[in-house]
Amino acid sequence: MDNALLIGLSRQTAMMREMSVVASNLANVNTTGYKSQSMLFDQYLMPVASEQSPDKTLTFVQDYGQFRNLADGEMRATGNPLDVAINGEGFFKVQTPQGVRYTRDGHFQLDDTGQLVTSQGYPVLSDAGTPITFAIDEGHITIARDGTITTSRDGISASEQQRGKLALVSFPNMQALRNEGDNLYVTDEQEQPAANPRLIQGSLEGSNVKPIVEMTNMMEILRSYQSAQNLVQSADDMRRQAISQIGSPA
């Protein structure tokens, strides 16, 4: 009975964490550049868990990590020249008070000083590791496929100037990225230039969350949780019945 309770509780604990991941996916279905996540589960074998176990081996549920789906989200044209979508591999670099962070959210804007910043006001970094700043009269901004930024005054090609190149980086282990809020990631992995960068100016990458899939997962988790709850309840009822019989006078 103790084993049944422990097995049921281990499964319920894992499913609670899985439900939290599914809820996070659904909450970010409209978040620019968001990558959905899923839980990774494994069996945990407990040898000699109880003398009452015939084979001396019990199997518990163990969630040992999360998997991030790095597939591209849907590309949405916005017409805003400061919106930039990444098609394929890579992350933008931004400077935050906590240090350099990474994001797929290319919804950029200019602050009061002409600096290119994220929606949260964090400076976007160039491949040289410096912020990108524009002059007041530079009204035509062009961002090339490789991230090179050029500007011109009043659309005159003779006045074109290069203002730097957006940093686009990748990592040896992309699954090591950790969410840090504000659509930002942090990692201990060594960054490296993204191979064959492909940027699309005037577009944004949508979330790759599939709401119908996530809702289906949520219903399956609820059914599995209820099944585990029934197992726990049955084991508890058996325990109560055994105690009642043992405590009854002969």
Rank of each mutant, 00 (worst) to 15 (best):
T59E: 06
S227G: 04
S53C: 05
M75G: 02
T133K: 13
Q161R: 13
A167T: 08
S234R: 12
T187R: 02
D2Y: 13
L9P: 09
A158I: 08
I243F: 00
V29P: 06
R223W: 02
S227W: 00
P81L: 06
E220I: 08
S10Q: 03
L204H: 13
A228N: 02
D112N: 13
R145M: 12
A242P: 01
Q245K: 08
D154A: 15
A194F: 09
G247E: 14
G88E: 11
G79C: 08
V213N: 11
L5S: 12
A4H: 06
K93P: 00
G88M: 15
E138C: 07
Q62L: 09
G139A: 13
A144G: 09
A228C: 08
V100P: 08
F60W: 08
G181H: 03
I200L: 09
Y44K: 14
R68T: 15
T113N: 11
I7G: 03
P81H: 08
R178H: 04
V213L: 06
N25P: 05
Y64N: 10
A128Y: 06
V48A: 12
D42C: 06
P54L: 00
D63A: 14
L168M: 05
L199H: 09
S50E: 01
S157V: 03
A135C: 06
F92Q: 14
I246A: 11
G206I: 05
P211F: 02
E205P: 01
T13H: 03
Y102A: 01
A144R: 14
S159L: 09
G206Y: 11
A176R: 08
L184A: 02
I132H: 00
P47N: 11
Q43S: 14
D188K: 08
A235V: 00
V84D: 00
L58Q: 14
S203A: 07
D137M: 07
S157Q: 09
L82K: 11
A235P: 00
I221E: 10
L82S: 04
V169T: 07
E74P: 15
T148K: 06
F67N: 10
S119H: 08
N183P: 06
T151S: 10
S24D: 10
N80M: 12
Q201V: 00
E189C: 04
G247F: 07
S227F: 01
G65R: 12
G129Q: 01
N196R: 13
P97I: 04
M39D: 10
D146M: 01
R240I: 03
T148M: 00
S24Y: 09
M46C: 03
Q192Y: 12
E191P: 07
N183M: 03
V169C: 07
N30T: 07
T113H: 07
M174Y: 15
A71Y: 15
V21K: 12
R223P: 01
Q12E: 05
S157M: 09
N208C: 02
Y44V: 15
V209Y: 01
G99M: 01
E160W: 00
L70D: 02
